[in-house]
Amino acid sequence: MVPVLDGTPASVDPATGTMLVSAQWWNQAPFEERLFVLLHECGHLEAQGGEFEADRWALETYAREGHSLQKAVLAMKHYMPFNTMEQYQRATALLRQALLLEKSPKG
């Protein structure tokens, strides 16, 4: 953990697998948000992709473990500043994926 990360609650270095987490954010975030953010960072390593791939991997893993899809979507709402088009697109993609997972036989 580091005291504060600029502009993000956590980050991971794909070359080393080292994850940095903002202690300031961690200490105030609810469990579901912390879990989703950590899964997102792991998603960068597992899916070996950008933000959309990491979001997708995180949500699938979150759902597979039996956690609330609604809480995952709300987690993104709490830490995402929504000041770029990409952030809106990520949120929309995550919501669509959550709705599809909810309708699937396993969801």
Rank of each mutant, 00 (worst) to 15 (best):
V2I: 15
V2S: 12
P3C: 11
V4Q: 15
V4K: 15
S11D: 13
D13L: 10
P14G: 03
A15G: 12
M19S: 06
M19N: 04
M19C: 13
L20K: 12
L20Y: 09
V21A: 03
S22A: 14
A23T: 13
A23I: 06
Q24H: 12
Q24T: 15
Q24D: 15
F31N: 10
R34D: 10
H40D: 05
E41V: 01
G43H: 02
L45E: 03
A47T: 05
A47G: 07
G50Q: 06
E51Q: 07
F52M: 04
E53L: 08
D55L: 02
W57Y: 14
L59F: 08
E60W: 07
Y62N: 04
A63S: 05
E65D: 10
E65Y: 04
H67S: 04
S68V: 10
L69M: 07
Q70D: 14
L74H: 09
L74E: 15
Y79L: 09
P81D: 12
P81I: 01
F82K: 09
N83R: 15
T84K: 11
M85E: 15
E86Q: 14
Q89K: 13
A91R: 05
T92V: 03
L95Y: 02
R96W: 00
Q97V: 01
L100M: 09
L100C: 05
L101H: 00
S104F: 02
